[in-house]
Design a protein around this nucleic acid. Structure first.
Lengths: 334, 334
DNA sequence: TGCGGCCACTATATCGCTATACTAGCGTTT
DNA sequence: AAACGCTAGTATAGCGATATAGTGGCCGCA
């Protein structure tokens, strides 16, 4: 049925081992024989059985990707960047999603390990190091840090994100700045911390009632913003956990008949594709998503190539403020 | 090092085969023994080696996904829907992208086959059936049909999409309707055909200079629109290949100081997430992306489960017009 | 002539699991 | 009592590749 090395070997009157070595261009085999093997392999349309090879070499050339939700364009972009960076090295990406559920995530990781992936890239929903610290497979955390876990990590400094965004709103003249906070994770906590630091640094009061849990998507951002608007006193600036939340907030604000940025200035995080084409073009903090994916891939490649586990490395990429109309209140140029 | 079945067997004084059967809940093994095996397996934290199992059973529980580009939210959404539908059945998705290149795509498919995936889902960049018709692995084409290939397929009727969009523009009073066409593929051809049919049916002239190649993304849509605007006579309606192209076109139109939809009405295809929050909320044709992914997954699951190849099935999902401000010229309600 | 060394292979033994075939022991049937 | 069938296992032989060790022939050198 399918062609095996032994078929080539029989045809050529040599041993299967010689075929195996020839195809891997091993130096034990003479050039003449290698040529014959390659020729016959091509004729028979031979294709390596990677499963069999994996069994004996212990390497699958598979990398598992665990994300909360591929639908979020941030993670889709990560996945794309990873594929691009890993495939030249012969790796394939195996995806699975955790739906923000730590237990599901752990089960997924287990499964991926039993599939013998050579490495893992994880945007983790874990709140503790427990499930991850026993991992034997090399891995890289991406975007989200896990408390108490010293591991390879690539991400942005979330506190800087919060600080940058909030300071920008302050500079635009906002004085009552609210924060639509994300789910409880290192990411959300860092951004909140940065938000607080910026307020304090500029002598503004940190009011806990101006921080609302807003989930991480469009719909929950909309709801949170509605709650905020129903109060007697309105905020004049909103720092949103991410762009989808900001889009939801935008919807709520515009529906309420208010103007962005005149009544309320708005800024998100992530630089979603096309967010410059929104009804009010959305200011945001760019995390360098593609670069993050690429760096994570490189870090993982290095870890997988090493014989002994390497010392974990942390790569922190600098966030970048992108000012668009949703937060531009000063008549400043451009 | 890692725990194997034979370790459990030795501990319990039974044969490895008995362990294998017990863990698969095979009826040959008594309940008492099964319980002992399961208990010991849990204690030792035993995990199946899927590579080894695959080698003997011939099934990997892997499904390969081949798309042109995961960055396009359409394909990301497909990937997400597929993962969601396949993982309950124990399948994992292996992704690879073709960058719209037929040769790369064929190479990727080859590689996935040599990894022994049980099935494939392909949004193909092929223009002919050649590369695909020799596939032995069950597969489902998604979104894009390959000319001359009778295979499993899930997608929308592209001609209907073109017709629906164009008719809508006509009904809104447009008389000079341009089409920003996508790359040459069944998809783009179908949409173009529908565009022509709608024009003819309403007694409008089909002018070939109103059909421009516009690629499939934001940037190329922008350029195509600029070319179109540089002409002496302006169109008053644009049917765009997809939403990203429409976003690019929108940018060009607004930059030119024109109004959407008053000067030019605009409609895209795909119902990109958040496209209702655009500067001018974008009318579009919804293809039911998530449903497409789900149906494709089900079709593939059925094909993989069958002993003998099943007769190929084609599932055509109906497109749905979504009217937003970018094309609403009549003072109609809502 | 003998011996070491190198070249170009061959031979064997797994990798961890499961398909297939076989068997001991016991109860039931005729 | 012999034959049969059932239960609950065991024994063997791979799946298709590669790691590791071994081997025959030839050359050069003393």
């Amino acid at each position: 049925m399918t062609v095996r090395m032994k078929d080539i070997a029989r045809d050529l009157g040599i041993s299967p081992m010689a075929v195996s070595k020839a195809l891997r261009n091993h130096k034990d085999i003479g050039e003449a024989t290698k040529a014959r093997v390659r020729k016959r392999a091509a004729e028979l349309n031979y294709r390596m059985d990677w499963v069999a090879r994996s069994m004996v070499t212990g390497r699958t050339y598979l990398v598992g990707l665990v994300v909360p939700d591929l639908m979020q364009s941030f993670f889709a972009e990560i996945a794309a960047a990873l594929t691009a960076a890993l495939s030249p090295a012969g790796y394939h990406l195996l995806i699975s999603h955790s739906s923000e559920n730590a237990t599901d995530e752990a089960a997924n990781i287990d499964l991926l390990e039993s599939r013998k992936v050579d490495g893992l890239i994880i945007a983790s929903a874990q709140r503790s190091a427990k499930a991850l610290k026993s991992l034997k497979t090399p891995y890289v955390l991406i975007d989200r840090r896990v408390p108490g876990l010293k591991a390879n990590y690539v991400g942005t400094e979330n506190e800087d994100i919060g600080f940058l965004a909030t300071r920008h709103l302050i500079e635009q003249g906002c004085r009552r700045i609210a924060h639509l906070k994300g789910p409880v994770l290192s990411t959300a906590e860092g951004r909140l911390k940065g938000y607080r630091r910026a307020l304090e640094k500029h002598g503004l009061k940190v009011q806990s009632d101006l921080v609302l849990d807003a989930g991480h998507d469009d719909a929950s951002g909309y709801q949170a913003m509605q709650r905020l608007l129903s109060r007697k006193v309105r905020p004049d600036g909103i720092f949103c956990f991410n762009d989808p939340v900001a889009v939801g907030a935008m919807r709520a604000i515009l529906e309420a008949g208010l103007s962005i940025p005149r009544d309320i200035a708005l800024i998100g995080v992530a630089n979603m594709h096309s967010s410059d084409m929104f009804r009010v073009p959305l200011s945001t903090i760019d995390q360098g998503t593609a670069a993050m994916g690429e760096q994570a891939a490189n870090l993982l490649l290095a870890s997988m190539a090493a014989k002994k586990p390497l010392a974990p490395r942390q790569l922190i990429l600098p966030p970048r403020l992108i000012v668009r109309a949703s937060s531009r209140r000063q008549a400043a140029g451009n």
